[in-house]
Design a protein around this nucleic acid. Sequence first.
DNA 1: TGTCACCGTGACGAATCCGTCACGCTTGTT
DNA 2: AACAAGCGTGACGGATTCGTCACGGTGACA
Lengths: 232, 232
Amino acid sequence: MSKILIVEDESDIAELISLHLNREGHEAICIGNGLQVMPAVLAQQPEIIVLDLMLPGLDGMQIFKRLRADTRTASIPVIILTAKGQVTDKIAGLELGADDYLTKPFSPRELYLRISAVLRRVKKVTHVSEIQRGRFMLDRKNMKLFLDGTALDLTTIEFKLLTTLMENDTAVHSRADLLRDVWGYNSDVATRTLDTHIKRLREKLGAAGEHIVTIRGTGFQFQTELAATQPA
Amino acid sequence: MSKILIVEDESDIAELISLHLNREGHEAICIGNGLQVMPAVLAQQPEIIVLDLMLPGLDGMQIFKRLRADTRTASIPVIILTAKGQVTDKIAGLELGADDYLTKPFSPRELYLRISAVLRRVKKVTHVSEIQRGRFMLDRKNMKLFLDGTALDLTTIEFKLLTTLMENDTAVHSRADLLRDVWGYNSDVATRTLDTHIKRLREKLGAAGEHIVTIRGTGFQFQTELAATQPA
DNA sequence: TGTCACCGTGACGAATCCGTCACGCTTGTT
DNA sequence: AACAAGCGTGACGGATTCGTCACGGTGACA
């Protein structure tokens, strides 16, 4: 289904991953330390890149930066793999703008889930500047929300939270997903923080706050059309 | 060049405007109080709408809200015309999300300039989620700036300011334009505030702050390629 | 060279925003 | 009905952000 580039030197891991991915219907391309073929592979426009930071003789971070600096590759989502020790040193320190990261050891299943999640997220982003959902209209350019035609001011977090919810109004967004999408990684924010922001958002929306529905035990969902409330 | 819808009851003003616009190569369509034809005209997808708030028997604000609430018309930029007295009452109060507004009396020339400015601004917005300019990469989705591949955190205003500058890196952005684009109308912010934010932005950019160039007496400009500095 | 408008800069106070916590209600289960 | 887990809510302190001002430097122009 999707073309996936894997940059990983440990051949057993690479093989395991690609086997797993190919079985799921994806097309995995593996590169070890033979990085000279990378431009050729990039020319095939992979949809997502899995990059191990621990490569022999070369800093994976350099590769990552180069990917981001090049117009043709800057928009390709990257999932980063690291060994345990590196995490706090490198990743946690700099907000590197990867789409996800995994620390070894991990199960192929987990990586696959992450890849699916990233792909799902990215593909949603047709990124029109305006999102219309019933009474709501999100204006990304001016970071404003129009409710029934009147403008509402949202804070950065509120806007991002609502955007995330509205971008996929059929899905239920788990607490973990929301925390990651809105706050990013290194997000050591308490899970109750999410509740607080949901509350503040609902407050600003007034009665329309009901469109943000709690899915008990899972997360939250934006419902464009409210389910009819049957009176007693 | 562009199709422009004018909703204005005072026929002399409407005529004056449309004459002026047609002479400039635009296609102006005027509607007075015969609003029943409006849907038909909207179906022709005008690129911009000029709306007088003072219409006999009908509140122009209602029309505006209806335009904004309808998916098909929500993205059409609107320039609002008002008489002097209304401004403080209506406009200043609600952040209505118009693209510009003018108070009567005004010169047709001024309106034409505003229309041009709005059209120029809107057309720039192909709104890809990422803007690449030399060493800079703006990530709208995550509101982040990548400089040489490393992420920089900007505040809301800083991000919007830089975005505005970068979206049109050939143009010089006047102080008034920047104030309007970043702060919106009702922006009673002092003009020095802009300087302060420019400074803070340059500070965060470090040496790369030189890409924001001061055009003395006019405003600022983002230059993707720095003009070579000749040493003495 | 002198003058003046324009701009850069640092400091400051106010306002906003944000994360956390404690408490209590709700929901679902036994 | 009793209990526990999940969630809503209000309050609080800290951090960030923002707008303003005063001062000094710089460039333009006569």
